[in-house]
Design a protein around this nucleic acid. Sequence first.
DNA 1: AGATGTACTACGACAGACGTTGCAATGCCA
DNA 2: TGGCATTGCAACGTCTGTCGTAGTACATCT
Lengths: 116, 116
Amino acid sequence: MIEISSDVIRGYNDTMILYILRNGPSYGYEISKSIKSMTEGKYVIKETTLYSAFTRMEKNGYVESFSGAEDRRTYYRITEAGKKFYEEKCEEWELTKEVVEKFIAKNEESVLLNEE
Amino acid sequence: MIEISSDVIRGYNDTMILYILRNGPSYGYEISKSIKSMTEGKYVIKETTLYSAFTRMEKNGYVESFSGAEDRRTYYRITEAGKKFYEEKCEEWELTKEVVEKFIAKNEESVLLNEE
DNA sequence: AGATGTACTACGACAGACGTTGCAATGCCA
DNA sequence: TGGCATTGCAACGTCTGTCGTAGTACATCT
């Protein structure tokens, strides 16, 4: 069973969270459920990772927190800076993907190309 | 100018190095040149990152080092364990890509889908 | 009453990346 | 011949995001 290494996702947890918040405010537990269902259970964010991402992003001005009126939850809303950051991350991802894929062998093809 | 964040590549530096070593033994400086040219300068691995990757991978048994007969370089050769590790990383990458891409908006399309 | 789910916080450890520095040999150009 | 760039590597310490562990508290279900 192959698992996603957190080292890759590292730095993209924020992006995932912001993606969800672009559809409206949400809170920790709901976001973690969203991520799990969107990835069909392939990726489940750790609670500590999630909440530390909130504090980091709030400090950076990418999200704002507010208390729910009827419940004890802490909601988060994406800011303009957060949207901008998200879009930059999307562009960065395209570049990263392009770079990494040059080093990925797809099913045994062309092992001996010896490019340089 | 968008730059690749090291947080994404984190954990894939080893994979890149192993990819190159699959074509035969090499040494630090040559590998860094290869990575740079293969990515058309889009990614340049830091020296410290490279050499610390060598020691880590040697400790893990993914590479073996030996001294060049004619020069003062330290060469590295990929081991069977290294090849196996590399192939696992390739599979992991496919999965990671699939997961991350669910959270990437490609050029303003479908911002309001609200999937859940 | 106890288990499970919801919702969040605090603390500390770990590992990979990276900045900085240092050093030594070589090549080259002026 | 002097100086500078390039090659090639090692040691040190710092930073940051992730994650393990633990704890709190309330709600609901059995």
